[in-house]
């Protein structure tokens, strides 16, 4: 559905490279995630794919259409929800949806089955103006508006940024149901924990893709033995772990410290003794599978 080949975007007089020779492809019906922090180039990639920006190098096709030459055809067939999209605050829910339906040459009834699940949640408030809705409801409305013309590909730029964990969970459940309707979805997020909800992901930082694969394959290819360590004081624990010669890197991870070993890990007893020598009481030590966040940190440390 989407083919991106060495696409590059450069901004301004200082030639800041926002997107640096990025390539990836997205298959039909796939939920593809671009995972990376702010400023990684996610929005620039979205804008190039939705024909809003011209690439400075490389090429890309969406639905088989070239993003530069066939931009009008792409515009007819994709749905897009930009990061700062906030709808028309002074129009009601109903008016917003009807407006976008008409702009895309369709009616709400025609594709009602697509938005039904989401729309019934906000329907009781359909006479309310968008400006008076809660963050979660605005997000649902925005998704309805992006879906109303039955796009073949849906681009969602950071739909969950600044949204609390409960609403985020609800949002991802909606995406899963959409995927079941065979809509290809490309979504970006700075939250690493959302990566596992995608079929395939690209980890991106400073315009460069660090890795592309299924979340499972990415975590499986984590090169180090990873241990979760718990001690009585986190900051001294981290200092102790990071100064240990066999450990490549150690960092806080929730209540634990994660320690990545260069080659083979040491036994629990060895670790307990080592920490004791630094006057830290070890409370837990167990081998764990790397998460996407561990992988991301691993790539950044390299």
């Amino acid at each position: 559905m989407i083919q991106v080949n060495n696409i590059t975007k450069v901004y301004g007089k200082e030639k800041t490279v926002a997107v640096d020779h990025v390539s990836f492809s997205v298959k039909e019906g796939e939920l593809f995630g671009l995972i990376g922090p702010d400023g990684a180039g996610k929005t620039s990639i979205f804008r190039m794919l939705t024909t809003l920006l011209l690439p400075d190098g490389g090429s890309a096709t969406v639905n088989g259409f070239d993003v530069v030459k066939d931009f009008r055809k792409i515009r007819n067939s994709v749905g897009y929800m930009p990061g700062k999209f906030s709808l028309y605050q002074d129009l009601t829910i109903e008016e917003n949806i009807n407006f976008f339906a008409t702009v895309f040459n369709t009616t709400v009834n025609e594709n009602y089955h697509l938005i039904k699940d989401i729309y019934i949640q906000i329907e009781p408030f359909k006479k309310r103006r968008a400006g008076k809705l809660s963050g979660g409801m605005k997000q649902k409305l925005a998704l309805c508006c992006a879906l109303i013309h039955k796009p073949t590909v849906l681009f969602l730029d950071e739909p969950t940024t600044g949204v609390d964990p409960v609403s985020r969970k609800e949002f991802w459940e909606m995406l899963k149901r959409l995927k079941a309707q065979n809509i290809t979805i490309v979504v970006s997020t700075p939250y690493m924990d959302e990566a596992t909800l995608c079929d395939r992901i690209a980890l991106i930082q400073e315009g460069v893709i660090l890795s592309i694969d299924t979340p499972a394959a990415i975590t499986a290819s984590y090169p180090h033995e990873l241990f979760a360590v718990k001690g009585d004081k986190m900051s001294s624990l981290l200092t102790a772990l990071n100064s240990f010669s066999k450990i490549k890197t150690a960092y806080a991870f929730g209540e634990f410290a994660h320690a990545a070993f260069y080659a083979h890990a040491i036994s629990a007893q060895e670790m307990r003794d080592y920490l004791k020598s630094k006057s830290i009481e070890m409370e837990a030590y167990q081998k764990i599978d790397a998460s996407i966040e561990d992988c991301f940190i691993g790539f950044l440390k390299n």
Binding site: P190, Q205, M234, A252, F296
Partner: peptide
């Protein structure tokens, strides 16, 4: 730390500590 990469997020917490 909204939107900050995981490594910087930890460095930020180091400052907090």
């Amino acid at each position: 730390t909204g939107g900050v990469d995981p490594l910087t997020r930890r460095q930020f917490w180091d400052l907090i500590y």
